[in-house]
C-alpha cells in the first residue's frame, strides 16, 4: 500500500512541465487580466488600482453590450446549425461500413487540416460577388445582380459552421457509437416505428454527446476571430474583434481585459448551464 502511494508520488513529478506551462500561460495571464480590468486608462496611461471604469463603460457606452449579445447570438446560431447538420452525419457514420466511416471522418475533419487563409479564399471564390454561385445564377438568368452571400452574417455563419462541424460530429459520434444497437432493436420489437425509436431511445441516449458538442462549438464560436473578420468584412462585429481593436488601435489594455473577462464569464456560465441540464436530465 505505502509502496504504491510512493510510486504515485513519483509519477506526479512527470506532470511538472505541464503544470508549469499551465501556470505560465493560463493562470498568470488570467490573473493579469483580472488585475488589468480594474485598472484606469487615461491619456494613454494605465494606472493599476481598483476602478470600475471599464465595467461601467461596457454597460454604458451603448455599443459594447450590443456587440456582446450579438456575439452570443451568433455563437448560438452557429451551435444550432452545427447540431442540425452534424447529427445526421454522426448517425450515418455510426451505421455505415468501416471504410465509409473513414471517408466521412476525413470529410468532417478536412476543414481543420486546411489553412485558415486557404479556406477563406476558397469561400471567397465560391460566395463572392463574382464567385461560382453568383456567376452561375446570373448566367442562367435566375438573378440580375449578385446575391449578398458574404460580408454579412450568412457568410460568417456558413464559414464558421464549416470549420467547427467536426467538433460537433466527433462527440456526437462517440455518444451514438456507445449506444448498444440491441437497445434500439428492443424498442422496435416492442412496436416502435423508426422515428419513435429515434425520439425515445437514440436521441435521449446521445444527450451527453449533444451537450459536449454544443458546449465545445459554443466556446469556440465565442472566441472565433479571423474567419468573421474575413467573411464579415467589418459588417459583422463580434466581441473578439472589439478586444483586438482596443488593444491594437487604442492600446487600451484595461478595457480589453474587462471585455475578455466578460467573454470568459459568459463561456463559464454556458458550461455550468449545460452540465446542469445534463445532470437534470440524467436524474429524470
Amino acid at each position: 500500500m505505502s509502496r504504491n502511494s510512493d510510486e504515485n508520488y513519483g509519477a506526479l513529478w512527470l506532470l511538472t512541465p505541464t503544470v508549469l506551462l499551465y501556470v505560465a500561460t493560463f493562470f498568470v495571464p488570467i490573473i493579469m487580466l483580472g488585475v488589468l480590468s480594474f485598472a484606469r486608462f487615461e491619456m494613454s496611461v494605465t494606472t493599476i488600482g481598483f476602478y470600475f471604469d471599464n465595467y461601467i463603460k461596457i454597460f454604458s457606452d451603448g455599443i459594447t453590450l450590443k456587440i456582446f449579445f450579438q456575439t452570443v447570438r451568433l455563437s448560438l446560431v452557429i451551435t444550432f446549425w452545427c447540431l442540425i447538420l452534424g447529427y445526421p452525419v454522426a448517425l450515418m457514420m455510426r451505421s455505415c461500413s468501416p471504410k465509409m466511416k473513414m471517408v466521412l471522418l476525413f470529410c468532417v475533419v478536412s476543414p481543420l487540416l486546411t489553412s485558415i487563409i486557404v479556406r477563406n479564399v476558397a469561400w471567397l471564390l465560391i460566395l463572392g460577388r463574382s464567385g461560382i454561385i453568383n456567376d452561375t445564377l446570373i448566367q442562367w438568368g435566375l438573378t440580375s445582380k449578385p446575391l449578398p452571400l458574404m460580408y454579412n452574417e450568412f457568410g460568417v455563419i456558413l464559414a464558421v459552421v464549416h470549420v467547427y462541424l467536426s467538433f460537433m460530429v466527433l462527440p456526437l459520434f462517440g455518444a451514438l457509437n456507445s449506444i448498444n444497437s440491441s437497445i434500439e432493436e428492443a424498442a422496435s420489437s416492442l412496436g416502435a416505428p423508426s422515428w419513435r425509436v429515434f425520439l425515445s431511445i437514440t436521441l435521449p441516449l446521445s444527450l451527453p454527446g449533444i451537450m459536449a458538442g454544443c458546449t465545445l462549438v459554443f466556446i469556440l464560436s465565442m472566441g472565433v476571430y479571423l474567419t468573421p473578420v474575413i467573411m464579415g468584412g467589418n459588417f459583422v462585429l463580434t466581441l473578439p474583434m472589439l478586444i483586438t481593436e482596443s488593444v491594437r488601435e487604442q492600446y487600451d489594455w484595461p478595457f480589453a481585459s474587462a471585455m475578455a473577462l466578460m467573454l470568459l464569464l459568459a463561456i463559464g456560465f454556458m458550461v455550468i448551464l449545460s452540465s446542469g441540464v445534463q445532470k437534470l436530465v440524467g436524474r429524470r
Binding site: 448498444n180 440491441s182 437497445i183 432493436e185 428492443a186 424498442a187 422496435s188 420489437s189 416492442l190 412496436g191 416502435a192 416505428p193 423508426s194 419513435r196 425515445s200 431511445i201
Partner: peptide, 17 residues
C-alpha cells in the same frame, strides 16, 4: 418490419432502456 410484428424479444445483454 419488426415494429409491426407482435413478438417479444429478450437479448443476451438485456438491452433495457
Amino acid at each position: 418490419p419488426p415494429h409491426q410484428r407482435t413478438v417479444g424479444l429478450v437479448f443476451q445483454n438485456y438491452a433495457l432502456f
